[in-house]
Design a binder for these strands. Structure first.
Lengths: 408, 408
DNA sequence: ATCTAATTTCTCGACTGTCGAGAAAAAAGC
DNA sequence: GCTTTTTTCTCGACAGTCGAGAAATTAGAT
């Protein structure tokens, strides 16, 4: 069923539009907002007045005026309107970042990821969040959103990790990490989903468009994939399919997930290690492989060692076949490769292309663009900010009380 | 970028809401529309008055009033507001249906699909369309939409068949089938996409909800797949990925598409034939296999013939592995199996389940629901109507002239 | 035959929103 | 000090939704 519309929703939508223009371009003047949003000047006056009264945005201190005419009044988000904490979970560390409403990074620290079960893990995160607010002397209640990312499968609507390399199918509910005194909403997303979102937003910013859809492939100990698509409504649609554990080969090598023949069981770091040393494919996979170990194999491969070369080539082929299936089921799209595994791109490339080349989609639409994007951590952080602020802004605008009561 | 909103769009949205309620439930009274849409009674008055003035809806002739109180006034679409033609292309026939704006089928006929290239094909369709309007003495100009369906890959936005079993990658632009005097828009969709859309709408109607996503799998000479998803906005999102030509097995059997190892090259009718007779897998596939031929193989399989059994089982496995990949990349969802191939479900089932069972998604989310839905043709037609009328209604409402000028 | 209750449709005024035009503000140049 | 230029702000017109209650119309009671 379609949703009904009303004049209030119109104002909400257009307020969101103003706020998102401010996010994208930073400080803007009245006229600039009007240009960016397409709304009439009078409408901008009305909306900015509302937002200012609600203490969501503020007029920046005057900067040196340039050119003649009435000086511009720049608007920007009120820094202490609220805060955002991002929690980036990787295999060995948990990184916490505190960001104010204007998007400025206030604090960042990492803590080693301890051993133990999900309870201990959640307790550690809970402590980390407490530490984050205490270090900056910020009221817990003013944290609007905690944005968590991890590898693995996130529940589509709840902040629950449905499957992860570390805890398997034992669910982890991050909502439980917030104790009393916190009012923040908690969201959880797959890491590579955020990367895909960040890449799409970068495209919008630089080319003002470009292809409307892309995939991000993260190579490392595990294999991550995110898809981002610009869709009619305006809000991009991002998802993180279970690519790493899609079937590559029936009855194939044993994977960390317990299944057989997953893509990861051929292309993950542990799989490359296994293949290079000709360990039987049903060997229980290594919990963790230091990058140095794979570097050694890569060095041998680059020196001509056949077995090492084959390990990378097969890994590439698993990825290529997997990508060909991705393109078959999601349509043709460019692929951006990121993660620690990109340093072996020279050894993987041939296999990837071989795997891709056979399929009908590729024969029809051509080889998809394969671009290596090295700096995964900043993409993840960017993705966090994009997604988190769009949610925070939506929530703030949605709660009409804040817009009206604050005006008293 | 988000889209800007305005009060006019609000009216558009709500008018569409009223029209879609009318589509779903048939004739409705003022109060019923209000209940169905959630709009205030006064708003319904205003909108229905507009639509009536624009000659889009009309008050039905009074029917026997029941119960006391002021008698209801029922609204329904004005039949001759415009017409819709559906063109359903199958391997041997082309079926034309003429439907009025109220959704009543006025005429239907089929013509054999001739030989020849794309030009001859388009000319035949052009003639078929002419015949459709002439038989019912309808003005070409009052046909609002021609909705075409076919197997194969449709262009995402244009009515162009990008790949089809018959014409291969030679594109067919159905817009060219309309000559002078026609103002209709032409849309083209994959047949199984329409099936998926129809199944989703049926779920909405009966259960008022149910799972928000499903897949339709059509088994026949070729393999079709459609995905339908209820999404926040209200308009369902339907797509037809290139499932049949997704890679099933690297360097596998030759497919009609020219690639090797496609799902279809193992699960299509010609593939079952090839496997049952132990013809080498790189044999050029048969253009067309009569169902009777496959029936014979099925009979032999049911009588215990090993080779025939294996042919079906391998076909099932190709489908099962393919579906497991679908679930990996699109999330867990129930699958509805349709098409002529459903009559061999008993022989395919085991293979399908075997192929599905191995994967991570299935181990996590359980075996997906597999439901056989026999009557594919009516699903296709239903899908045509759903999609076509939602577009027609949108267009009619969108063209503001019709709403205002008609009031003179 | 008339009155009352029930039910539905229609209308009015209040409210919220967008927009265009032009007034007001404020700095730079002459 | 006046003019030009540029930006912001304000006003009134217009479009839309909503709640309340009036108007319409029938069934049943008296």
């Amino acid at each position: 069923m379609l949703a009904k519309s009303s004049t209030e929703l119109v104002r909400q939508q257009n307020s969101a539009l103003v706020l998102s223009a401010l996010r994208r371009h930073g400080r803007l003047a009245h006229t600039e907002i009007s240009d960016a949003t397409g709304l009439a000047s009078a409408t901008i006056s009305s909306i900015t007045a509302d937002l200012e009264r609600a203490r969501i945005i503020e007029k920046s201190e005057q900067q040196a005026t340039v050119g003649r005419g009435r000086p511009r009044v720049l608007f920007s988000q009120r820094r202490n309107c609220g805060y955002l904490i991002t929690v980036i979970i990787s295999s060995d560390l948990i990184q916490y970042s505190l960001i104010d409403y204007a998007g400025t990074l206030l604090d960042r620290f990492s803590e080693p990821r301890g051993e133990g079960g999900t309870a201990a893990f959640l307790a550690a995160i809970s402590a980390g969040l407490e530490r984050a607010v205490e270090r900056s002397r910020i009221d817990r209640g003013s944290v609007l959103l905690v944005s968590v990312s991890s590898k693995g499968l996130a529940h589509p609507s709840e902040p629950v990790l449905v499957w992860s390399p570390v805890f398997g199918s034992q669910p982890v509910d991050f909502a439980a990490a917030l104790k009393d005194g916190w009012h923040a909403k908690v969201i959880l997303n797959n890491e590579t989903l955020l990367v895909a979102g960040a890449l799409l937003e970068r495209q919008v910013k630089t080319q003002g468009g470009g292809e409307p859809v892309l995939a991000a492939l993260s190579l490392g100990h595990s294999i991550g994939l995110g898809i981002a698509r610009r869709v009619a409504g305006g809000v991009p649609e991002i998802s993180a399919p279970n690519f790493g554990h899609m079937l590559h080969m029936p009855n194939g090598g044993l994977c960390r997930c317990g299944a057989r023949g997953c893509v990861e069981a051929y292309a993950g770091f542990y799989a490359i290690l296994r293949a290079a040393f000709e360990v039987p494919l049903d060997t229980i996979p290594a919990k963790f492989v230091p990058v140095a170990e794979i570097d050694k194999i890569a060095a041998r491969a680059r020196q001509g060692n056949r077995m090492a070369q084959l390990a990378f080539r097969n890994a590439g082929a698993a990825l290529g076949y997997g990508l060909s299936r991705l393109l078959s089921l999601h349509g043709h799209m460019p692929v951006f490769i990121t993660g620690p595994g990109t340093r072996y791109q020279d050894l993987l490339q041939a296999g990837i292309e071989e795997g891709l080349a056979q399929t009908h989609v590729v024969r029809l639409g051509g080889m998809p663009g394969l671009t290596v994007v090295p700096d995964e951590p900043s993409l993840v952080f960017e993705g966090h900010l994009n997604l988190a602020f769009s949610i925070v802004d939506q929530d703030i605008i949605g709660s009409r009380q804040s817009m009206q009561a604050a005006g008293e």
